[in-house]
Design a protein around this nucleic acid. Sequence first.
DNA 1: CTAGGGTTAG
Length: 700
Amino acid sequence: MNTLLLPPPSATTTATRFLRHHYTPQPPLSTTPYKHSHLRSSITSLSLSEDDVITPHDTVSPSSNRRYDFSPLLQFLSDHISGDGLTVAGDSTEAQLVDSYRSVPPSLWHYLLKTLTSSSSSPNSISTTYALVDWLHKHNLCFSYEFMYSIFIHSLGGSEMLYEAFLLSQKHDLTPLTYNVLIGACARNDDLEKAVIMMNKMRAEGYQSDFVNYSLIIESLIRNDQIDSGLLERLYDEMVSDAIELDVQLLNDVVLGFTKAGDVNRAMHFLGVIQGNGLTPKTSTVVSIISLLGSLGRAEEAEAVFEEISDGGLRPRTRAYNAVLKAYVNNGGLRDAEWVVNEMERNGVCPDEYTYSLLIEAYGNAGRWESARIVLKEMEANNVKPNSYVFSRILVGYRDRGEWQRLFQVLKEMQKCGVKPDRQFYNVMLDTFGKYNCLDNALLIFERMKDEGIEPDNVTWNTLIDCHCKCGQHDKAEDLFDEMQQRGCSPCVATYNIMINSFGEQERWEGVKGLLRKMKSEGLQPNVITYTTLVDIYGKSGRFMDATDCLEDMRSAGLKPTSTIYNALINAYAQRGLSEDALNAFRIMRSDGLKPSNLALNALINAFCEDRRDVEAFAILRSMKENDLKPDVVTYTTLMKALIRVDKFEEVPGVYEEMILSGCTPDRKARAKLRSALKYMRQRLKSESYSTKPLTRAEY
DNA sequence: CTAGGGTTAG
């Protein structure tokens, strides 16, 4: 019931691909994993039979199925290991041993090698295994010394014994096979630096690196979140120029890599390459693309890719549906979101906790809390338990709509569902109270979470500190900053940003510099938000030199300026009526390739307003319309303010009317501007009845 | 491969 088999792990592992690729002239490979029933922790009692290697369905010619006891051999080898790991020259015992193991099939030797390296990691067993390889080689008991040696290195790499694998590899000249197996071991152990060095060495010696190694490298990069689009592109170019065979799995890894790097376009391109070659991508790869498209709100494309799953003859499962659902939720397509869930149920695919969460989020975004509650009921009916995440999303929804009092209702609801608030939920609660000036409640919640045994984390402390800053309690905020550190919670970049903002508002400039020094000394690099905060606080207090210096610092730190940082600068100039400087900052922003947003343009209008240049302010309005930017309430309010500045009160009602006509809902500030313009007009009429010279606004 | 998805700073 057996045949000679090589020792292959499962069919889908890269190890099999490795073997298949490199080991052509040998017997067929099994595609079944080893059975581990005979693994022994002690190498001195090891008996194996071919049954250990052969699986029941490999039924070929029946032959003897001897069980071999390897204990005597292993004992002999471990007794005879010399300093460099080689066995000493033999005697009659050795000759007897050679004789008794002569009929052991290669597959069994390979299995033995693997067993020895994976069952124990003692240095002793490694040297014994090494001695075994040499011994087999010496007595010609097993074909291909190189192959056994590769299995050994591969196993060491798989058991996180990279160092041992390297030591071993130094004892012999490297062949393409051993090079590749070593590179693979490096990649598997996330030592990409070594992997690349080996690949280069290999190339220098005129050998081709294995395509599997590229897969392993990409997988390692993905595992460790070290992948970026540029890097992957360079890797791909290298593969192409080396004429590396691009199999489905490698292409899948490329797609997955670009997905993880957030580069949908390239990911989709390579998805097309897979399909163009008549190959089928892995469903998980396709789903990851849909997810990415979903988080980018590119719903139509997400659905198109989703359709490809069924076009490929596969039935989409929950994960795939969830990915499309996410796309519609992020895109605000509530009806489409509902349609996806209906479609799932129609096709007999069960919604899971994530499906319901997404649906609840969609209803929450649309302000349809009743519908969200119905979904909660439906979850209960279907025995799907909601978790803290759903509720924190709901709470965030309420918070951002100003309906923070609903917090208590959410808490009640959670209790009813038997869901305990977790740390993240507590953090949102803290933030909600803090944002609405309820510091006492925030502190109460802080105590309660500690009572519940939930350790405050960075976010907890940051939220608490920032809430105090926002309420003007800078001293208390600083106390909390100290307390956080005393309690062993290290400040992160966000903490420093909050503190820098606080010190800046207090105009404690030395303190700001001190914080920057401290954060850098702790190995924390200022990020875009740090620089924006600095530009903001310096700009607001009129320290424009410092502000522009920060912008330069940011550039030299290799960070790209964002429109937010320019907005901060333009705003600062605007508030002091420095319209030329504001305009200049705006132009630099444009030359950086940044699109002007309403925020920037409104700030610019404000700059002209404060500088009494109403004509230019209205020129901005015109250019907004020409560039398809929709003026908002702030735009019109600022324009009304500009008119009032230059005493053109009678033009204000016209602007107010245009605002309404363009579909903007006037807010308190907009109405106030109209009211004061009307007031000035009335006053002017009154005074004109007494004198011929009209008064200016300043004279009232 | 059984998660995914969430919270703070401009």
